[in-house]
């Protein structure tokens, strides 16, 4: 571990190297303290360790050594995207924060994104391409790709497994690949992807999308077995929007209410104004009951939601 970490020595990151490292220097200094007076008169100088300064040969135009630079970027997490500002010290990313101008971040991040900067310094991180366990230089890799491409044919023998990314660039590349090699098989698999959300959107007639919750406009929030403030997709944005509706700045402001029905403990549940613990099998019954209750009081579900609600109601026993 120590050995692996060595290239990331912070001294090197600053572009400054010690000729003698400080610890051994101090050790020698301590031992020869009595001789210090003599050595001063001999060498003319008892000084701090000699440091070397390595100047750039070509300094990037907007780089001021020792000053942080910020780069806007984005990361993907649990099917959602979050906009980030990454602080870079002399070319080394050191801190990840949310981009205040990105709608999915609004200036905040979650714990995973905060920790993601450590990925860059992970000693196990792959630094060079590997083929069949062997490390190859990039030039050799290109050769291999050329070879691979010529033998690909219509793509019958190729299958791709990709995660739940939503990158348009990736999609266009996949589209191109499909066009040139029509028989390529593409599989997507991602546990963190909100598949049920996408399916739900499809049921109400909006195919290929996933729900985004407008919590900043909700006065009453009913949450059925979902941790929208904790771990399930878009949590940063959700938490911000949810909190906005709880902020009282004038006497006319009101607060939202959060009702949570869930079988286990979650971040959302701990924030709830009212929390009901129910077994997962009973959550559906609760919903059906609620719909019946609302209907009896003359409250109708929104037009788009009527179909799935009815679908849910049909599947549930009428007795409840």
């Amino acid at each position: 571990m120590t050995k692996l970490m060595q290239p990331e020595d912070p001294k090197e990151a600053e572009g400054v190297l010690d000729e003698v490292d400080r610890r051994s220097f101090l050790g020698v200094m301590g031992a020869s303290m009595a001789l210090a007076g003599v050595s001063t008169s001999l060498t003319g100088c008892v000084r701090k360790p000699r440091e070397k300064v390595l100047a750039y040969t070509r300094r990037p135009e907007d780089l001021v050594p020792g000053e942080p630079r910020y780069f806007a970027t984005a990361a993907q997490l649990t099917g959602g995207v979050i906009g980030l500002l990454v602080e870079s010290q002399d070319g080394r990313p050191t801190k990840v924060e949310g981009n205040p101008r990105h709608p999915m971040s609004l200036g905040a991040t979650d714990a995973f994104t905060q920790a993601s900067v450590l990925d860059l310094y992970d000693p196990a991180r792959v630094k060079l391409p590997r083929v069949e366990g062997k490390v190859l230089p990039f030039s050799a890799l290109e050769e291999r790709f050329e070879h691979f491409k010529t033998n690909l044919g219509d793509g019958e023998a190729l299958a791709l497994l990709i995660d739940g990314q939503e990158s348009p660039t990736l999609f266009s590349l996949l589209y191109e690949l499909r066009r040139s090699h029509p028989k390529v098989k593409i599989y997507r698999h991602d546990n963190a992807c909100p598949r049920n959300g996408v399916a739900g959107a499809g049921q109400v007639g909006i195919r290929g999308t996933r729900p985004l919750y407008a919590l900043e406009r909700a006065d009453r929030v009913l949450c059925l077995d979902m941790d929208f403030l904790g771990v399930e997709g878009d949590v940063v944005r959700n938490a911000r929007h949810y909190a906005w509706r709880r902020r009282i700045t004038s006497e006319r402001d009101t607060m939202n209410r959060l009702y949570v029905v869930e079988p286990a403990f979650s971040v959302t549940g701990t924030n709830a104004d009212h929390r009901l613990r129910l077994a997962p099998s009973q959550v559906g019954e609760f919903l059906a009951d609620l719909i019946g209750h609302m209907a009896s009081r003359g409250v109708n579900a929104p037009a788009g939601a009527r179909r799935p609600l009815h679908a849910a109601g049909r599947r549930l026993p009428a007795s409840r």
């Binding site: 300064v53 750039y56 001021v64």
Partner: peptide
């Protein structure tokens, strides 16, 4: 602009 008055680059 910075804490250091950096040593100029070779450039």
């Amino acid at each position: 602009q910075g804490a250091h008055a950096a040593i100029p680059s070779t450039e």
